[in-house]
């Protein structure tokens, strides 16, 4: 469903070429639930942006839902849903209901399908209480639920979330996680998310991609990730150690390593 083949992206900052992502290759099969981890500035967001067509890769090839994101951006937009934890995709001054209606029209979702979908989402995410509230007045938890609804109205095959649980309280976080798990299990939607919250990873994901210095540092299961730093009690400690290890050797990040017991790539 998602294929990255030796993808690279460079930025020129003050005449110096910075490799935000280099030689990144991975595949995500249909129905997988994958977390993308990495320290700040590792290239996670750049990767997500190349997968969604926001950024054009400077090298390599990307395919999502059978399309090249940067060349077929609008066609891809109809097949994927994207949620940014840090910013809303909704219209600030419009009530949530009107924002969703506008999304329906932009994605050309049939009115009847929209009604059913919205009712279902209202049920699952408890939107009913704030559908009439302007987006700017929503709490972060409500806004996130609204954003997730907007991303799923057109029933995309792939859902990409960039830090969906950032800033959410414990209850909202649990609700969002529960919803994503059901979406993946019941509808078979492929989910790829980036996060700094390892609770997301432990509770949701079967597979982890660790990106560091723009390269793939680990690709495998959560248990496989634990095994890379034996003796560490929590997954937090394991990841912290991996981040620190790479920080001490910044110029030679670990080479892409096949997962010891990760799921083999399925197309």
């Amino acid at each position: 469903m998602i294929e990255a083949d030796r993808v690279g992206r460079t930025f020129t900052v003050r005449r110096r070429v910075v490799h935000a992502v280099r030689d990144l290759s991975f595949r995500v099969g249909a129905g997988e639930f994958v977390a993308c981890l990495g320290p700040n500035g590792a290239g996670k967001s750049t990767t997500i942006k190349m997968l969604t067509g926001i950024l054009t890769p400077t090298s390599g090839r990307v395919q999502v839902a059978g399309l090249d994101p940067s060349r077929r951006r609008t066609a891809l937009a109809r097949r994927i849903g994207v949620v940014f934890g840090q910013r809303t995709t909704l219209w600030w001054d419009l009530p949530l209901r009107d924002s969703l209606e506008l999304v329906r029209l932009l994605y050309k979702v049939d009115r009847k399908v929209f009604r059913e979908r919205l009712d279902e989402m209202c049920d699952l995410l408890d939107l009913g209480g704030f559908l009439a509230t302007p987006v700017r007045q929503l709490s972060l938890g409500q806004r996130m639920r609204g954003d997730i609804t907007a991303a799923l109205l057109h029933d995309p095959a792939v859902l990409v979330l960039d830090e969906p649980t950032i800033g959410l309280d414990v209850v909202s976080k649990a609700e969002v996680r529960d919803f994503l798990r059901r979406l993946n299990a019941e509808r078979g939607t492929t989910v790829l998310l980036t996060t700094h919250d390892l609770g997301d990873v432990e509770r949701l994901c079967r597979r982890v991609l660790l990106i560091d210095h723009g390269r793939l540092a680990f690709d495998g299961t959560v248990d496989g990730l634990r095994a890379t730093a034996p003796g560490r009690a929590s997954i937090e400690d394991v990841v912290a150690e991996l981040y620190l290890r790479s920080r001490t050797t910044p110029r030679t990040p670990p080479a892409p390593r096949p997962a010891p017991d990760g799921p083999s790539a399925t197309a």
Binding site: K49, T52, G53, I54, R73, T74, A75, A77, R78, I80, V82, F84, Q86, R87, T88, T89, L106, Y107
Partner: peptide, 13 residues
């Protein structure tokens, strides 16, 4: 503001 990112993920120019 990063709002161009949001425009680029919608199925419209």
């Amino acid at each position: 503001a990063g709002t161009l990112d949001v425009m680029l993920i919608r199925p419209a120019s």
